[in-house]
Simulated scan of single mutants.
Amino acid sequence: MAGAIKVSKTHLVRTELDSLLAGLDIGDAVPAERELAVRFGVARETVRQALHELLVEGRIERRGRGTVVAKPKLVQPLSLRSYTEGAERMGRTPGRVLVSWDDVRADAEMATALGVRRGAKVMHLERVLLADGDRIGLESTYLTVARFGWLRESFDPATSLYAALRASGVEFGAALERIETALPSPREAALLGTTTAMPVLMLNRRTVDVADHPIELVRAIYRGDRVAFETFLADR
């Protein structure tokens, strides 16, 4: 028929795979490329491309030498709440693994954002974020030593930083947050248990308290196949 739209073989295979996955449970094995190619009557490369799309979307995941149906993405609210609250809301078990905790000197941009002089000591806390033991994010938090140096004596980096700050009397006021897509560096990919070809969601945030005094700068990356963000919008 004139004007008919030609549908690619990869799209057709994706449609078949969507139907296949709908009948499987989380953790169930996905048939091998060779088996799927025979079943759908296409080349293995076509199946491989369709599976790669599902992998990037977080619908499936590699496990050993096989592929299984993945858990739903962890949906994080865009709010002044901790990662812990978002994970627990979805019935997931949050966790953190400390990568490094050291002092750095504030450069001009960081000094302005945190309200300190250039060269002032700033704590850099880097942690891998977990959900049910799976690595889903890598978070770098910067706080001034002058205001938050006490954390070194009492804070357990495996727990919620926001909970510790609130317990100390810090009242969160507002944050400016920017989210964009990126590709992880080799180091970041290794810490996240992914590859440099797998897109991540990069978040940059500056948070202030109710008196508009800076609290933190955060740079975090989240696996795009494991995490999604949501917010509530209303026109009132």
Rank of each mutant, 00 (worst) to 15 (best):
L203P: 00
D18R: 13
V99A: 01
A167C: 02
A87Y: 02
G3S: 06
L24M: 12
V56H: 03
P199I: 01
D107F: 14
V47A: 11
D132P: 00
A43T: 15
A106L: 10
L17G: 04
L192K: 12
D209N: 14
K73L: 14
S79H: 10
D212P: 00
G95I: 04
R147K: 13
G41D: 04
A175D: 09
V47H: 15
Q49N: 11
I26P: 00
L12V: 08
G66R: 08
L98F: 08
G169S: 05
V97N: 05
L129N: 01
G41Q: 13
L98P: 01
L114Q: 03
L17I: 03
I26V: 15
V13F: 04
H124P: 02
L143A: 02
V104S: 06
S154L: 09
F155S: 07
T67R: 11
A131N: 04
G137T: 04
Y162R: 07
Y83R: 11
A131H: 03
T112Q: 13
I60A: 01
H213A: 15
G193H: 08
R187Y: 12
A220D: 01
R62W: 04
A131G: 05
V13P: 03
G66E: 11
I221L: 12
D25V: 00
P31V: 09
V56Q: 15
R223K: 11
V170R: 03
A120S: 15
P186S: 10
P72M: 04
V145L: 08
L51Y: 06
V97L: 10
